[in-house]
Amino acid sequence: MIVVDKPKYKMAIYEAKKELHIQIQGFLKAEVVEEYLNDLQETVAKVPKNTYTFVADGTYQSPVPSKISAELGQTLMFYASLGFKDIVIVNPRSKIAYVQVRNALEGVNFPGTVVDNVSQLAMR
């Protein structure tokens, strides 16, 4: 069930799978970040985090400017700090964005799983 459907991001709760998905489309400009965080907070509050998996789907994420790329690891760790049972990052299709995410994950002690596409979630 999609609970947020905005031009730059979507958020959905899949009760049967016990998953909360967020999907970034393009990249979030500074003026959208506050609205995104508010939507994220409201969506996260709708599920029991200790039994749900948080899926950050970057499939359609665009490369981010180098200034923002440096903060990408902190963003991924923020997702990890939300208190979910498990956290999964879906790599972007864009080769540049993929490398940015990979490099960001190398710089932090990320406790989750990284997959190349959403279909791999069913195989976990």
Rank of each mutant, 00 (worst) to 15 (best):
M1I: 07
I2N: 04
I2P: 02
V3W: 04
K6G: 02
K6M: 10
Y9E: 08
I13D: 02
E15W: 02
E15S: 12
A16W: 11
K17Q: 08
K18S: 13
K18E: 01
H21R: 08
Q23L: 07
Q23W: 11
I24K: 01
Q25V: 10
F27L: 09
E34N: 09
E35Q: 03
L37E: 12
L40P: 00
E42I: 06
T43A: 15
T43S: 15
V44L: 09
K46G: 06
V47I: 01
V47W: 00
K49T: 06
N50V: 07
N50P: 00
T51H: 09
T53L: 02
T53V: 03
F54P: 05
A56E: 04
D57A: 08
Y60S: 09
Q61P: 04
S62H: 14
P63F: 13
V64I: 13
P65Y: 05
P65N: 07
S66L: 10
K67V: 14
I68G: 01
F78A: 13
Y79C: 07
Y79I: 08
A80N: 11
G83A: 15
K85E: 12
D86C: 05
D86Q: 14
N91S: 15
P92L: 01
K95I: 05
Q100H: 14
V101H: 08
A104P: 02
L105K: 14
G107Y: 14
G107I: 13
V108I: 15
F110D: 05
G112I: 00
T113C: 03
V114S: 11
N117Q: 10
V118S: 04
V118D: 03
V118Q: 07
S119R: 12
S119L: 12
Q120A: 10
R124L: 14
